[in-house]
Design a protein around this nucleic acid. Structure first.
Ligand code: FES
Ligand code: FES
Lengths: 143, 143
DNA sequence: ACAATAAAAGACAAATTTATCTTCTATTGG
DNA sequence: CCAATAGAAGATAAATTTGTCTTTTATTGT
């Protein structure tokens, strides 16, 4: 569904959203441990998201990653778009070079519904929503 | 959503289903051309599906791939299962080692709906259904 | 039996994705 | 200003997926 990179990205950002809801920052090591991902790999991913303005970062002592008020309005779709591109939003489920209404693949109509459900979910889930859940052990980001 | 291998597999089998509805057989070259895939690559894929009994094949002159009555009752889910395993049917959308009701990821409940929709689609689509569409240029397997 | 045909199988190679390691740069507190 | 900290960046490597090439085996019609 998503690339491994994108899975880490989403988990990482959700983790950051939860841990920095109080305005603090969190270091890359804690993020990697928190979501069970390779440290340098998630670092690169977060750096790209930071460059694109999806999350914030700060170098030096007391530095780390965090989300500002603006970022909390971003959605999971923004992350997926940056990491995996728009394939999942508009691509053909059977891998045709492009999805098309006029030259549809045999599953086009059915795939479209699923794709739209995924889009809707990703677009309607804002990063700010993840601030509290984890602390109460209601949901998990690793196993 | 699916691996490239699995996309080719589905397109290939649908193509075979359409072209051999009359009881004939079709060669690997025609399949590769028909779905715009690398010839030897789709060959390996079809060989595996053949070993698993999802499709049939016959060596030698007048040989080729085809679907018998039994195979036409198979579903797209059978193909996906053979090629990509059960990740798409039961795996966690955020890449946790296993999806779990008791230790769910933050998107578990939403992902489950999507996963179930995909499962339902794949399980309810039988290979026999593809026998006529393509001939009338209603749907396409390459572009 | 024989030659032609077509899939099966296995080895190999390219490309992409995922992961690791090292060095550089910015920031902080003293 | 200086030393410590932590992210940024770039190079390298491993693993996986995707694609190609060659040889073998089964089947057919003559
Ligand atoms: S053409 Fe395949 S999903 Fe639209
Ligand atoms: S735990 Fe992530 S989808 Fe079930």
């Amino acid at each position: 569904m998503f690339s491994k990179t994108c899975e880490y990205a989403i988990r990482g950002v959700i983790f950051i959203a939860q841990k920095t809801a109080d305005g603090s920052r969190i270091g890359i090591k804690e993020v990697a441990a928190g979501i069970d991902s390779p440290e340098h790999f998630i670092a690169k991913i977060l750096q790209e998201l930071s460059r694109k303005g999806i999350i914030q970062s700060q170098k030096g002592p007391t530095g780390g990653f965090y989300l500002d008020a603006q970022s909390r309005k971003h959605t999971l779709a923004d992350i997926v778009h940056v990491i995996d591109g728009d394939q999942i939003f508009t691509g053909c489920g059977l891998g045709l070079k492009q999805c098309s209404e006029t030259k549809p693949c045999p599953l086009h109509n059915e795939f479209k519904k699923i794709r739209d459900a995924i889009s809707k979910l990703l677009r309607s889930t804002h990063l700010g929503e993840f601030s509290e859940q984890l602390e109460h052990k209601l949901v998990f980001l690793k196993r």
